[in-house]
């Protein structure tokens, strides 16, 4: 009888020790697999794990707390769909947040497109309207695949914004003989999930691009946030150039910076959108999360 009790007690102590080692993460693969099976089968084993998690968590709490950067909460908001408020727009600029944002864009640029919210970003390849690359990035892992038909799925607000056509695009000249001009570059920034997006048309003759909001105002997703547009170089070691704030509604004409006008499209062919404090980044670099990156294409608008 005593021997049976001793065996039971020993078994309990073994389970307790294995639970501690499991919580510490030091069981090897085979031991862990066996223990996980026991976890499923035996409530007492689960209690042992909870016991050690409680005890060892207290050891972890002895570390001095470190407040994480504001950008982390923003990332969590985007991934969970939690709405933001004014006080959640990053107050700090520069520092670790900026570094991270910059790093994010550099990685994203090499992957063609990035989204921290499983947003889809469509990038149109040069002169291939039906060849679309869709990239979805979640939890640091990227998958890129061909999705020729995806462009059509942008239609929830396609009709709200017509491509800059000769009849709707800007005029060159001021009198009745003025001619409508064609865009030299076009781009599309979009979020399928929330039907928020912008279309971009660049005009060399004007030295400017027109950015037109489509779909819902972005503030429905990021309340009182400010979204800033950036021109990205092909070489990711070059710094991005701010193009100003994105319009919430309607269109905005944005001058192409003179010092990159001659290299526009050849050396600077991508646009990015970042979340910034009210009024835009104070550092000249993206400081918040990079929401979208899109590659510009040669303008191919229809003939009149």
């Amino acid at each position: 009888m005593n021997s049976r009790l001793d065996d039971k007690d020993m078994h309990k102590k073994d389970n307790n020790l294995s639970a501690a080692e499991y919580v510490l993460g030091i069981l090897d693969a085979d031991e862990r697999a066996r223990f996980q099976q026991a976890l499923q089968d035996d409530a007492a084993v689960r209690d042992e794990v909870v016991y050690w998690e409680d005890q060892l968590a207290e050891v972890g709490l002895k570390l001095s707390p470190v407040t994480p950067p504001d950008t982390i909460w923003q990332q969590i908001q985007m991934q969970t769909g939690i709405r933001g408020t004014a006080d959640e727009v990053p107050k700090e600029t520069g520092g670790a947040g900026a570094t991270r944002a910059w790093r994010l864009w550099a990685v994203a640029a090499s992957l063609v497109a990035v989204s921290a919210l499983s947003l889809l970003v469509v990038t149109q390849r040069e002169n291939t309207a039906d060849s679309t690359v869709v990239a979805s990035v979640t939890a640091g892992e990227a998958t890129i695949g061909q999705a020729a038909a995806q462009d059509d799925s942008f239609n929830p607000f396609e009709e709200a914004l017509v491509w800059s056509s000769p009849k709707l695009g800007p005029k060159l000249g001021a009198n009745s003989n003025a001619t409508y001009i064609s865009p030299d570059f076009v781009g599309k920034i979009q979020d399928y999930a929330s039907s928020i997006g912008w279309k971009v048309a660049g005009y060399n003759a004007l030295g400017a691009m027109e950015v037109s909001a489509a779909g819902k105002p972005y503030t429905q997703l990021w309340e009182r946030a400010t979204l800033e547009l950036w021109l990205l170089p092909i070489n990711s070691y070059e710094e991005p150039i701010s193009l100003g704030l994105l319009p919430e509604n309607g269109a905005r004409r944005i001058p192409i910076p003179a010092h990159v006008a001659s290299e526009f499209y050849t050396d600077y062919n991508k646009l990015a959108v970042s979340v910034e404090p009210p009024g835009g980044s104070l550092t000249g670099e993206p400081t918040g999360d990079i929401l979208f990156i899109t590659t510009l294409s040669r303008g191919t608008h229809p003939n009149p």
């Binding site: 709490l61 470190v66 991270r100």
Partner: peptide, 21 residues
């Protein structure tokens, strides 16, 4: 709670980038 969890993640992962992710 995040300051406590972040401190632990920094300690284990040792880089700001990994801990933030």
């Amino acid at each position: 709670t995040s300051p406590h969890l972040f401190a632990l993640l920094l300690r284990i992962l040792r880089t700001q980038e990994s801990a933030e992710d």
